[in-house]
Simulated scan of single mutants.
Amino acid sequence: MSREYFARNPDYPFADAVLIDGKTLYLSGRIGFVPGTTTIPDTVEAEAHAVLRDLRSVLAMADMTMDDLVSLQVFCSDVSLWEPFNAIYRTYFAGPLPPRAFLGSGTLLFGARFELMGIAVKDN
């Protein structure tokens, strides 16, 4: 089994993702920071866009897109954010939406409202 690790910040104690056998990508938890900071955007909408753009950028490191996701977990600090998140989430996919869990988790790191993690598979 071959493994290719993707890590944008070597100071973090984890990789952003690992690609197994050039096909299956496992993504670590993604938080939607203001670019270049560890600051969370002020609004729900801005944070939803930020976390989805971050997820998309990690997928791109492995030459994948959002449509390669086969499973996604959304951890949310407040499940009442289901509808505002979904309104933005849908706009990031061209094809069918992947299977997904939306979990109320209480407090997230850095005061984030959302954290995403998932699995993507590259079509050869």
Rank of each mutant, 00 (worst) to 15 (best):
V51W: 06
L109R: 09
T65V: 11
L103F: 09
F14P: 08
S28N: 15
S2Q: 15
T91N: 05
A7Y: 00
V44P: 02
R100D: 07
A46H: 03
D16F: 01
D78W: 12
H49P: 02
S77M: 04
V121C: 05
G36L: 10
T107S: 07
S71C: 07
Q73K: 14
F6Y: 15
C76F: 07
L69G: 08
D123N: 15
T107E: 10
V34Y: 00
L103N: 15
T91C: 13
P98C: 11
N124C: 12
R53P: 02
R113S: 02
D63T: 11
S28T: 13
D54L: 12
Y26W: 15
A60N: 08
S57L: 14
A7W: 09
F14E: 05
V34S: 06
S28M: 11
N124H: 15
F75C: 09
E83T: 13
H49G: 03
E47D: 00
R56I: 04
K23P: 04
A7H: 11
L109T: 11
L25K: 04
L72M: 06
G104F: 02
I88G: 08
V74F: 00
M66W: 05
R3M: 14
S28L: 14
P99F: 07
V74H: 05
F85N: 07
A15D: 10
T91E: 13
P35Y: 01
I119R: 15
A50R: 01
E115H: 03
T65Q: 14
G36S: 13
N9Q: 11
M64D: 04
L55E: 03
F93I: 04
S71N: 03
V74S: 01
D21V: 14
G95N: 15
E83L: 14
F93V: 00
